[in-house]
Structure formats: C-alpha cells, structure tokens
Nucleic acid binder design. Structure first.
Lengths: 112, 112
DNA sequence: TTCTTATGCATAAAAAACTTAGGTATTATA
DNA sequence: TATAATACCTAAGTTTTTTATGCATAAGAA
C-alpha cells in the first residue's frame, strides 16, 4: 500500500476482516472497498495485495472461486473455517496493538 | 522489536514521543521505558533500536551527549528543534493511522 | 571465585513486507 | 482511437525488522 510505513503488517488483517464482513470478494474489489472505507486515506497497491492474498490462501485461510463477468475473470476469495479463526485472533492482536500504542502516545498519568 | 508485525514502522515515532516527554534518554533506558509503559507487551530489540536512533540522528532529529556513569558509557539523545517538529507530524500521522484502521475494523454502520 | 544477569553500546546477515515498475487483457469513455 | 477503468500477475529494489553476534563493566548468585 501507499501512505505511511505504519500500515506494514496490517494488510492481511484488513483482508481477513473485509472477507468476514462481505462473505466473498475479489482483489480489485478489496482495493476499492478500502479506499471507500478510509475516504482515500489508505490505498492498497496491487503489488502488496496479490502476494498477500496468495499467502493467505497458501496458509489455508482463504479459498478461491473463479467467476467470469463481462468476459473478465474475477477471483473471488472467501474465508475458510481456519481463516475465520485467524481473523478473530488477528483482530484481537490489532486491537491490543492499538491499545499498547495509545499507552505510549497518550499515557495516563499515574495515580501515585 | 519482538511481538507482532504490526509494530513495524512505529518505532521511530515511539522514540520521538518518549524523548519529547523525558527530555533526554539513552538507548537502554528507552527499551526499559517501553517495557514499563506497555506492561511488557512491547519489547524493543537492540538490533532495531540502535539503527533507528542512528538514523534519526543522521536525519537531524536527535542530538547526542555522552555521559560516563559508574564507569559505563551512556549516549543520551535529545530532540533537536527539527526533531520536535518531526515528532508532532509523526504523532499526527500515527493517530490518523489508528483512526483509519478503526474505520475498517470497527466500521460505523452507514445512516442511509 | 566464578558464572550469570543486568547494564550499555554496536553491527551484520537474513527475513519480512512493502513500493515501484513493469506485464497481459477486456471494457468503457473521452 | 487513445486513455482510463477493470482485473489479474510478478520481479527487483528498499526499508525495517529479527536474529545472532561482539565488546565491556557491574552486580549478584553459586
């Protein structure tokens, strides 16, 4: 993706989350959805997206279904059962990460 | 650092933030402070920390002051003026990133 | 007294995750 | 008829990290 270095590491979590909410999506659709959801703040590059999808599939978290639309090929991805589990733990991890970061950036003054 | 891939990219922002709040710190102190602030959730590795400090210094964001304590050498870092500016924009970027991520992970249902 | 842990710095090789820059092909639009 | 949008892909290069070292002093345990 473009934008900042901060996004590193969160791409596959984002993919898992979107697939959990939309049942099945194809790559290009994911890039557009992310742009829409983030009002253009986050743009996933294809060079990042496709390898990430392939890795998630290789890890058994996604399954593929091809579909031809307007004579163009779409590769629809959906979560496997393992993928759904993985999504849960990745989201938890992401939320813990955000809390941890908040604890540094926005530290609560100690009560002592 | 150890932990997860999510921390990628946020290390130098964390360093800048800590230096802004503590005036001057040395490397080892930073690792301990981060452990403390995050209750052990985040552990900065030295292999990540020192190169990051050197890069921030090379970029003109940090200045160094050596000090000998108990016959051990400490390298104290403090923000330059440019470093303080950089800290402000990095923190803004980090907060925007968190909001963006929240927008994906915890999307508000549209009112339409 | 000697080994381990803690303190304090550092770098180099490898891995991981990206960006950048290409490539192919179809359809819609200017 | 050229460009943009849709739809997939990969390879080279960059950046940032982990892992694995190395050196040195001080403190504490065996």
């Amino acid at each position: 993706m473009s934008n900042s270095k901060l996004y590193k590491g969160s791409l596959s979590t984002i993919i898992l989350k979107l697939l959990a909410e939309n049942n099945k999506m194809y790559g290009y659709e994911i890039t557009q959805k992310v742009k829409e959801l983030t009002q253009g703040e986050l743009t996933i590059t294809e060079g990042a997206l496709y390898p990430a999808l392939h890795k998630l599939e290789a890890d058994g978290f996604l399954e593929v279904e091809m579909q031809r639309v307007d004579n163009r090929l779409r590769k629809y991805y959906k979560l496997t059962q393992a993928g759904n589990q993985e999504k849960v733990s990745r989201i938890e991890e992401l939320e813990r990460f955000i809390e941890t970061i908040q604890g540094i950036v926005n530290p609560k003054p100690s009560l002592g």
